[in-house]
Amino acid sequence: MIQQFADWLVYGVFGLDASTRLGESINFFFYDSIKITILLFAISVVMGVINAYFPIDKLRNYLATRRMYGFEYLLASVFGAITPFCSCSSIPLFIGFVKGGIPLGVTLAFLITSPLVNEVAVAMFLGTFGLRVTIIYVVSGLLLGMIGGWIFGKMKLDRYLTPWVKKIQETSEKATAVWEGEKSPFVKRLPSIIHDAWGIVRNVFIYILIGIGIGAFIHGYVPEGFFEEWMSGEKWYSVPVAVICAVPMYANAAGIVPVIQVFVAKGIPLGTAIAFMMAVVGLSLPEATLLKKVMTWRFIGIFFGVVTLFIILLGYLFNAVI
C-alpha cells in the first residue's frame, strides 16, 4: 500500500516519469520516508511499554550494589538497547553511571550498545532489510556490548579515568535507593506512552528525511560501480577500509540506514555496509570529545581501537552468514 501511494503521488500527482533518475529518486524518498516513520512510531510505542514496566533506576542501583558474576554485562547491554540515544547522547548517562560507582566495564557495555541498538535502528532495519537481518544485527550489537564490556573490565582501565571522575567517585556514596514500581494501570499509561513515542519520531524525523534524501540522491544519481571500487566484497581489505573511513563520521541510525540501503543496492556486500553503519553510529569524533571529560586520551584510544577491531571482525562475520 505504501508503494502504491508513493507511485500515485510521484507519478500521478507530481507527473514525474518513472524511467527518469529524478522520478526514481523522488519515489524512493517518499516510499522510505513513510514506511520508516510508521515503523518507528509502532516500535517506539512497543519500547515505551517495555520502558514503563522496566525500572531503569532500579537497574542502575542494582548494578552498583550487587555482584552478578558477569550477568551485569547483559543487563547493561539490554539497558543500552532500550534507550534511544546516539553515541553523543549516551555520554551524560554514561558519566552518571561512572559517578554512581557502577563498574567501568559495565558502563562501557552500555556505551557500546546504546547507539547501536535502539528502536530507531530496529525500526529502520526491519523496514529496510527484513526480520532476519534485523535479528542478526540486534543480537550482534548486544554481544558486542557484552563482550567488549567484559574485556574492558578485565583490562583494569580505571587508572585512565580523569582526575575529575576519580574525585567524584571518592566523595560520592553508592546509590542504595530501591525503586518502587508505579501501580497505575496500563490504560492510564498508554496516552503517555503514545505521546513519548511521537516525541521520538518528531525528534528524529529531520534526520530520517536527511538520511533518506541522501540515500535517494545516491540511489538515482551516483554512477554504478562508484562505491564498489573500494568496498567490494572481493577485496579482503574492504571491511577495514569501510570501518576506518566511517569512524570519524557522525550520524544516528535515522540518518545512515537509508544510505546503507543504497550501498547494498549498488552492490556493496551487506556485511560490509552494516559494519560501516556500526562504526558511524557507535564511534565518532564528537563522542571522543565528550568522553574527554571522563577519560584520558589513552583510554579513549584503547576504547576506540578495541571497538573498531570488533566491528571489523563483525563485518567479516556478517559477510559470511548473511
Results as ranks from 00 to 15, higher is better:
W8K: 00
K99G: 09
G12W: 02
A121E: 13
P163S: 08
A246S: 13
V13C: 07
P191E: 05
F318V: 01
M155L: 15
I26R: 00
G23T: 09
A123E: 06
G181V: 05
S33E: 11
P258N: 03
A64S: 11
V204C: 06
V280M: 04
Q3F: 08
K183Y: 11
I147Y: 02
L108G: 03
Y73E: 13
G199L: 06
F310G: 14
T128G: 03
I151E: 09
G271S: 07
L74K: 09
W179T: 15
A265Y: 11
R132I: 12
I256P: 10
I82D: 06
V45Y: 08
I274F: 06
I34T: 12
V13W: 12
W230F: 14
F85Q: 14
S238P: 04
G213D: 04
V241D: 04
R132E: 14
I136Y: 11
S87Y: 10
G141H: 02
E170R: 12
P258V: 02
F217Y: 05
T162Q: 10
E234C: 00
C88Y: 02
R189N: 13
I212Q: 11
I82E: 07
L317I: 14
L270E: 04
A279H: 10
K99S: 15
K183A: 15
G153D: 13
I43M: 01
G153T: 12
V259K: 06
I322Q: 08
N319R: 06
R202K: 15
G100A: 08
R132F: 08
W198F: 15
H219W: 05
L39H: 02
I256S: 12
K156I: 01
M249I: 03
G213F: 00
K188F: 11
L285H: 05
A6C: 03
S140T: 15
T65Y: 10
F276K: 02
Q169V: 15
A254R: 00
I302G: 10
L108E: 07
I256R: 12
S33K: 01
F14P: 07
F41S: 07
K154P: 09
L131P: 07
V117S: 01
